[in-house]
Design a protein around this nucleic acid. Structure first.
Length: 355
DNA sequence: AATTCGGGGAA
DNA sequence: TTCCCAGAATT
């Protein structure tokens, strides 16, 4: 019963392999991490590309492998330097997991990334997609790599209305792809599916079907379903949070503090701030209670920063002090150190670099 | 199974 | 505004 249905899908999908590979060989973008697909480079690129667009990764990739050219260099770099290399890219646990994995590779795999899907999957930060991507692209192992692009391409090809957010759907598609995998060209095949999703089989009704090498095979193109497929469960609304930022300055220095080592923006540097929107009178009281000698205080323009699940509504005050307190909970950081040495999340930059 | 992790580009 | 991005870890 189920078998009949699956066999039908697999037979249909098996026809995409040849035209897809032919299309990829003529249309593949030239990307920095495709020039020399050695395991370390593929690994770094795949982690950077998690939930992150190709264009956003480009300026980070070369700089990262120049600064940390080997697994050993990554394993040994101070965390602050690592976060500075990742600054602005987001999802900073990716960088920390990358380093944990590098240390594990040094100890358990003599410094070489393991050439096995299961061993890759056991490393921090490497899930089913990334293990499949590294295994197929760097080691030519015949396993699928199912990301958002592939989910969209395959559900459209077979006109499936299964919810692509569900684990069950992803595993079903992995199983289909495993069946039709050209095992000697797994890396190209996986990348071709992603490339098609990124360049032609676009989301939100923007599909460029006339350019698609698979249009004669595609059931969604035949029935004009590309605006309805894939089906995704809607995500939860963001919660708003009001914050008041302090730009405490003395001469060329600004007060910074390090965020906690867990949770949002862990271990990164931030401006002092408090919950809620405080008036200038409340600010004066607050600062005076801290025993700080205020020379001048000035309201800064409001700013908004949107995270995946939170929305920060920020107001801020520039407060110039007459003297540095003998003991303060903050690090006083000069402009050059701010730019060069400390990893500061984008959310704070409106107030950090407001002059 | 649901939530938590960033940030930016496109419509 | 909303959606989505070469997702994974934690709860």
């Amino acid at each position: 019963m189920q078998t009949t249905n699956n066999t039908k899908q697999i037979n249909m999908l098996s026809e995409i392999v040849t035209p897809l590979l032919r299309w990829y060989h003529s249309q593949a973008r030239i990307l920095p991490w495709r020039e020399n697909p050695q395991p370390y480079y593929v690994w770094i690129s795949e982690i950077m590309l998690q939930q992150t667009r190709v264009e956003a990764v480009k300026p980070y990739f070369d700089r990262f492998i120049t600064a940390l050219p080997t697994v050993q260099a990554l394993a040994e770099v101070p965390e602050g330097d690592l976060l500075k290399l990742w600054e602005g890219l987001g999802y900073y646990n990716r960088a920390r997991n990358l380093q944990k994995a590098a240390q594990q590779v040094m100890q358990e795999h003599t410094g070489n990334l393991p050439a096995s899907y299961d061993a890759l999957l056991a490393l921090p930060g490497i899930g089913r997609y990334t293990a499949g991507a590294i295994a197929s692209i760097a080691y030519h192992i015949g396993v699928p790599a199912v990301d958002g692009n592939v989910l969209r391409v395959i559900t459209r090809l077979i006109a499936s209305r299964e919810d692509i957010m569900k684990e069950k759907t992803r595993k079903m598609i992995e199983a289909y792809l495993q069946e039709i995998m050209p095992t000697d060209k797994a890396g190209d095949f996986n990348q071709a599916l992603m490339e098609l999703g990124a360049m032609v089989c676009l989301p939100k009704g923007a599909a460029k079907c006339p350019l698609c090498p698979l249009k004669q095979l595609c059931l969604s193109h035949a029935e004009d379903y590309t605006t309805e497929i894939p089906v995704k469960t809607p995500k939860k609304a963001r919660r708003p949070e009001n914050l008041t930022m302090f730009r405490l300055q003395y001469q060329d220095k600004i007060a910074f503090q390090q965020r906690p080592n867990k949770g949002l923006l862990a271990n990164m540097w931030e401006l002092p701030h408090i919950d809620g929107h405080l008036s200038i009178e409340e600010i004066k009281n607050h600062i005076a209670n801290l025993g700080l000698p205020i020379q001048s205080i000035q309201a800064l323009p409001p700013a908004k920063h949107i995270f995946t699940h939170i929305e920060w509504h920020m107001i801020g005050y520039a407060i110039t002090l007459r003297a540095l307190p003998a003991h303060s909970p903050w690090h006083w950081i000069s402009h050059s150190d701010r730019v060069e040495s400390f990893a500061i999340p984008t959310a704070f930059k409106a107030y950090v670099f407001e002059e």
